[in-house]
Amino acid sequence: MEEIKQRQSRFINLVNLLATDVFRYAFWLCGDREIAADLVQETFTRAWEALHQLIDDKAAKNWLFTIVRRENARRYERYQPDQERVELDEIAANGNYDTSTEAFVLRRALAKLPQIYREPLVLQVIGGYSIEEIAQQLGLSTGAVMTRLHRARQKLRHALQGTE
């Protein structure tokens, strides 16, 4: 019983600490709030089941992001949803967000950004990962990650400047 309590306490800490980042990452992966919430729930369900495999809690974010990515990929394998488009209107409808034109333009540009550029960028900005860590997470070379990050930012800047 004591073991279960410890496990619960550890799990609750992880949820409280990381659910927000995991949700945001899931959202920018799948582009849909409801699916993102489902992905997060599934991720934490799997995390609970495999919590004994997480040796160091410092690696938890990395571990959870990996699970989210895998669950999202599995969703595509099985389900093939038509949800490439990020639901900007839905974001807007949820209030409590930056309503500036700049943020709007950036969100729109982010939504249009191909997944191969968006994902490393989201990992860097939301996840706080270094280029080497992103390369490891995505199974890419550091060179490829640098190219994608560069292009992602370039496209976003062009969008902000109205040149795209």
């Binding site: 949700f23 945001r24 709030r33 919430a37 949820n94 700049e102 950036l106 989201v122 939301i126 902000l160």
Partner: peptide, 12 residues
Amino acid sequence: ASLHTALQITVP
């Protein structure tokens, strides 16, 4: 900073 803000979508 703008990019960071844009990515911070509201969490349920």
